[in-house]
């Protein structure tokens, strides 16, 4: 019975959203507002129970919150967590215009931590490792000598990367040889954008297939 209700609610809401394709209407508006409200409520409740209680309040006062969340009951109070609690409370100062500046302390901490954590990893994985992946032999050699497929692939990667970089090099006018390489760079970028667009179309159609598949299951229960 419960499954049936879920199926019907899901199907009717899907049809309400699809009705926008014909024109804007109250059914679409209702479904849209419902989605926004339910999403906000879900995130708030999920964050409260999966983050705030176990990761903060449960560590500060495990015995008191053990009744609500048994997994924290056995732990010892850890007063270090009073610091994030204090910083979190400072964030609420934003609600008043006169005290809003106090929240910047928390924001400074958050931004500083994120920048410090991310910087090294981005340098390693997105900078050094990516350069390393582009340094390839132009002539690919396989087991039986020259590997034509590998050679073409390496030339495309190295040539495409270099020409793309030249296109974004603005300290020299794009004329002569530089201009021709930059022009090749534009082609590389266009192919990349085309591939991204193709993938985006595929993604959107996949979601449509998923929804119509769902509506098909719903119709099967009726007929």
């Amino acid at each position: 019975m419960a499954d049936s209700i879920v199926l019907w609610v899901g199907a009717l809401l899907t049809l309400m959203i699809f009705s926008f394709l014909y024109r804007d209407n109250p059914f679409y508006k209702f479904a849209e507002h419902l989605f926004v409200g339910v999403s906000a409520a879900y995130w708030m409740v999920a964050s409260f129970w999966s983050t705030l209680i176990p990761n903060l309040l449960g560590r500060l006062y495990p015995k008191g919150l053990g009744a609500l969340l048994p997994s924290v009951a056995e732990g010892e109070p850890n007063l270090w967590y009073a610091i994030p609690l204090f910083l979190g409370i400072l964030l609420l100062a934003r609600l008043n215009e006169k005290t809003a500046w106090i929240s910047r302390w928390t924001m400074a901490f958050v931004i500083g931590f994120a920048a410090g954590t991310n910087l090294t990893r981005y340098l390693q994985s997105d900078f050094v490792a990516q350069i390393k992946s582009t340094i390839l032999p132009i002539v690919g050699v396989g087991d039986g000598g020259l590997d034509v497929g590998l050679t073409i692939r390496n030339v495309v990667i190295v040539g495409g990367t270099l020409s793309g970089l030249v296109y974004f090099f603005f300290s020299k006018e794009h004329t002569g040889a530089t201009g021709r390489v930059a022009r090749a760079g534009i082609w590389v970028l266009m192919v990349t954008f085309g591939a991204a667009f193709g993938y985006t179309v595929m993604g959107r159609i996949s979601l449509l297939v998923g929804r119509l598949n769902f509506l098909g299951h719903w119709l099967e229960t009726i007929f």
Partner: peptide
């Protein structure tokens, strides 16, 4: 960035089509 590379553990991925072109540069190394 934070798991496979520093931990030296192979990462296999499955993503939405929209995200896929952004991840090709990480393949195969």
């Amino acid at each position: 960035q934070f798991g496979g590379d520093p931990g030296n553990v192979p990462v296999a991925a499955g993503v939405t089509a929209v995200e896929a072109p952004l991840l090709y540069p990480y393949y195969p190394r």
